[in-house]
Amino acid sequence: MRRLDYRYHMELLFEQPVNRHHFTLRCLPGENERQRVLTEQVRIEPDYTGGFETDSFGNRCIYGRMEKPHERFLVDVTGTVQTEQNMAVRDTQMHRLGMYRYPTELTAMGASLYKIFQKASFDGESIMEQGKYIMEAVFGHFCYEPGVTQVTTTAEEAAALGRGVCQDYAHVMLALCRQRRIPCRYVAGMLVGEGASHAWVELCDKGNWIAFDPTHNCMADDRYISISYGRDAGDSPINQGDFYGTTGQRQKVCVTVEEKQDSFV
């Protein structure tokens, strides 16, 4: 068990004012067997009208609209989460599992994915073992390199390239699992340290979601805080916006997670 202090800080800077700005944020860690939210503070600027909701993937969302012109959009979420190691997340909506078993546009199979799929040995019987084989195959195939892929890069494109970031690792792993009809989902979240947000995958084994991190070739433990779930990255972006104005924009994202010093285990 750990207590983790986190901060998700995002700033969008526009060169010229924009208006009629709509946003949906999935930046609030959810509660489950693996993590408990102890404290949470949210700051969003400028003022907006909107509300809270839970989407079809179980994510807590803040959505809103800023009518007036503005040059900066700021989201700052801080809080403390208590995480558990080696705990599977129990699925409470098993009837929705089907959607996680089939390819999406971003995780559709292609020639490069088939190659990895055929190379990976699947001796394992359990979902856990199969997941580990697939994770290893993905990890072995990829070279971590930021800047060569985009948010819209598909699993097949990333696999053909052989390079990418955590989102690409996750998408490729999802595609391969789905080829075996293993229900699996994309997880956006944070990892102890400083930098960008992270992404990994969860596989469902008899109603329990087990977390694999193909970027690091390991199981996700209590150093991970999950934020949003979906069939792929497109289902559950941490922040998503739509505004009027034809102008350049710069996005700064800073995520920090550190273990609370005064915590006792």
Binding site: S56, Q93, R231
Partner: peptide, 18 residues
């Protein structure tokens, strides 16, 4: 069979539970 639902283009996961 579930593939006729999930492999089809008409199914929208966003509508789950609505």
């Amino acid at each position: 069979p579930e593939e006729f639902i999930y492999m089809g283009s008409g199914y929208l996961a966003q509508c789950e539970g609505v």
